[in-house]
Design a protein around this nucleic acid. Structure first.
Lengths: 138, 138
DNA sequence: GGCATTTGTACACCGTAGATAGACAAACTG
DNA sequence: CAGTTTGTCTATCTACGGTGTACAAATGCC
């Protein structure tokens, strides 16, 4: 019995056609959930196989995502114990903001504008994010 | 003689170690410049070989980036005419905001937070972007 | 006008990474 | 104690990114 508020395909979506690896899509999606606090320390994520079936990929692919998150300190992976969410100490802030955030954000905005999304709409989305951040969420 | 305000390695940076393809990094960087209006219609970008040398990659890699941008309607690629910036009609806005923007933004923020960047700092960056967007820039 | 240079393209090649398949060892369940 | 569950390991296959190289055509210089 594990507590699994994990996204079935609704919140965690995989795009096999995307040029970003599936295991990284999974890790990114789960990391977002973790950062948002949707999981607390001690919570257990689904087994690699269960999630793999849900997503329609191989369990090794999910395992790779789990391993990456474990390596980042989000999960503890014990055999047959499943993936347990860990308390994660806050890292000291790094000064490489431009590379880690500003540039990707800029490129993301450029892509969105190029896709025809309006400035007004993007501003709205950004402001929503700001609000969520201010409230301690994501 | 081409008008080339193109980034030497300062504004257009390539990370060979990144897991995102170099040709896509180039395309993303140039698209950001184009969206920002740093190039006008008729301007000519550097030749594939010139930019390739600047970036330290093969000219075919740059050519692939140029082709992608041309396919998106940003550039016109004529043999021996170089890459000419085109007037680009605005596409009709698509309704798939979450997939194209919200989700990637959310994951980017999650990654930044996971890296130890503070909420306050991220909020500042987001607000900067909002301001730039409001001013018609990027 | 002719010729070397420039320039984008096409094609083949190689290395690597992503995804899968299948087997394995250990813990849990009854 | 036997069967099931579960994460891991190893091997294999495929696709893609990046490079090397040759090519065709337009440009520029004399």
């Amino acid at each position: 019995m594990y507590k699994c508020r994990v996204p079935r395909s609704h919140t965690l979506q995989i795009d096999l056609a995307a040029n970003v690896p599936v295991y990284e899509q999974i890790a990114n999606g789960l990391r977002a959930e973790l950062v948002a606090g949707h999981f607390g320390p001690g919570d257990r994520l689904p087994t690699v196989r269960a999630l793999a079936i849900d997503l329609g990929v191989h369990h090794n692919t999910v395992a790779q995502a789990y391993r990456q998150l474990a390596h980042e300190g989000w999960l503890e992976l014990k055999r047959h114990r499943g993936a347990v969410v860990q308390e994660r100490r806050h890292l000291p802030s790094r000064p490489d903001i431009p590379e880690k955030f500003t540039r990707p954000l800029r490129e993301l905005l450029a892509k969105a504008l190029a896709d025809g999304l309006s400035r007004k709409l993007l501003i709205g989305e950004l402001m929503d994010s700001v609000r969520r951040l201010q409230e301690g969420g994501l």
